[in-house]
């Protein structure tokens, strides 16, 4: 393993244009937030892909465990009463 200086990892989120949410696009290595923003601009917005950039230290992101996917998300699958299609509206009433 080399002794090279290790630059921390930052996750990059870009808003393509106003009205849309920021979306994860990738990551960069940088010494601080300012440098991470500059690197993200050069790496991810060379063709007008963004109007706003967020960077966050990768280490600050907490994520759900894929091994617990079933416990986390399956309970939502059988709650069809949360869907509008679960309810009957008489045809005569029309669209609702």
């Amino acid at each position: 393993m080399s002794d090279r200086a290790r630059l921390p990892l930052w996750e990059v989120f870009i808003r393509p244009r106003n009205g849309l949410a920021h979306r994860h696009v990738g990551s960069v290595h940088a010494s601080d937030a300012e440098m991470a923003l500059m690197a993200a601009r050069d790496v991810y917005t060379r063709r007008g892909e963004g109007r706003s950039i967020w960077v966050a230290p990768a280490s600050a992101i907490a994520a759900s465990d894929p091994d617990e996917k079933a416990e986390m998300f399956d309970p939502a699958d059988d709650k069809t009463y949360r869907q509008p299609t679960d309810y009957h509206v008489p045809e005569e009433v029309g669209d609702m």
């Binding site: 990892l9 996750e11 994860h24 696009v25 990738g26 990551s27 990768a58 280490s59 992101i61 994520a63 465990d65 894929p66 091994d67």
Partner: peptide, 12 residues
């Protein structure tokens, strides 16, 4: 493209 700290979290 995802946090480095998350890798290998899913077991040995």
């Amino acid at each position: 493209m995802y946090a480095q700290g998350l890798i290998n979290a899913s077991g040995d």
